[in-house]
């Protein structure tokens, strides 16, 4: 266990934000979960008691008749904003006094940094470069993430859970978002920050970064395993595999939706459902491809003269 190595990674000034983000995220997940749980208990209670549901104010916080439903922004909100501004300023001041912004040597195109890492918030994308060619990891995936985020309000047809924390009413959407945000985004950043060392090789936390380490890995392509040699056959084979993944996966998504989310499925138009299927399968494809690479050393699934996937 090389504690010094671990400390050097964690204390690198530009890594401090991600080190800080982890407990912060844990805290806010806890805060959200606590409220979601309380709301879920209330929902269950109200669903079992129609009379109470009619009179209850439908929040977990106390409310008594005669209490005003609204409060003045001045001072009740503004004082909180003022306090928040002061606290943020103090945190920022203390942080800026105790920790200096990094400054390396002057830029030198002839001296490559190893590892050359992007800023921490982009390390998830950089980590994806291991599993996909740059045009997917660097261009298509980020575009899909942005578009995927933007279509969320238009494909989530569930009217429940608007304006309050809940888990039971939105299991699928919250589960999907947590998977995307925590597993595919944050965890990838953590891998990129703490685990990737020189040569973008895998070093477990606490393992010394060995700049001379060589790894003899033979990566194969999926068509090779099936003994396919001609280029034409490889292209067709890959198209079948990838197309098959989306067709078969699409069917699985459909049968799961029909079975477990019948109401949501009923509300969705064909376009909404199609987009959901596609985005969901693309999202799941990332860890699948990671698994293929890490466990079976498979580099490409689909090889064509123009692009490889």
């Amino acid at each position: 266990m090389d504690w010094r190595q671990l400390w050097e990674i964690c204390s690198a000034p530009d890594n401090v934000p991600i080190v800080g983000l982890i407990p912060l995220l844990a805290f806010y997940i806890y805060l959200a979960w606590k409220q979601a749980h309380a709301n879920d208990v209330l929902i269950e209670q109200l669903e079992g008691d129609a009379a109470l549901a009619k009179t209850h104010h439908r929040k977990t916080w106390p409310f008594k008749p005669g209490w005003q439903k609204e409060v003045h922004v001045w001072p009740f909100l503004l004082r909180i904003e003022f306090l928040a501004a002061i606290i943020v300023t103090i945190i920022l001041m203390v942080w800026s006094i105790t920790l200096n912004a990094p400054l390396e040597e002057p830029a030198n195109p002839n001296l490559t940094m190893n590892p050359a890492k992007a800023p921490w918030y982009f390390l998830g994308l950089q980590e994806m470069l291991v599993y996909f060619d740059p045009w997917i990891a660097g261009v298509v995936m980020p575009t899909m993430i942005i578009i995927g985020l933007m279509v969320i309000p238009y494909i989530d047809t569930n009217p429940l859970g608007s304006g309050y924390y809940t888990w039971k009413q939105r299991k699928f959407s919250i589960g999907t978002f947590l998977f995307g945000f925590i597993i595919l985004w944050i965890a990838m950043i953590i891998i990129g920050t703490f685990i990737r060392g020189p040569g973008w090789q895998w070093f477990w936390p606490g393992q010394t970064w060995d700049h001379n380490r060589l790894i003899y890995e033979v990566n194969r392509d999926l068509p090779d395993i099936f003994g396919i040699t001609s280029n034409m056959a490889k292209a067709i084979f890959g198209a079948i595999v990838v197309g098959g993944y989306y067709l078969l996966g699409g069917f699985v998504v459909y049968s799961l939706f029909r079975r477990y989310m019948g109401k949501d499925f009923k509300r969705m138009s064909l376009l909404q459902f199609g987009i959901t299927q596609f985005l969901l399968l693309t999202m799941v494809a990332l860890p699948l491809k990671m698994g293929l690479r890490l466990l079976w050393h498979i580099k490409y699934v689909w090889i064509t003269p123009w692009f490889n996937i």
């Binding site: 209330l42 929902i43 109200l46 439908r58 916080w61 429940l160 304006g163 309050y164």
Partner: peptide
């Protein structure tokens, strides 16, 4: 958006 009153199924 909230905290809004909870909606029932």
């Amino acid at each position: 958006s909230g905290p809004a009153p909870v909606m029932l199924e």
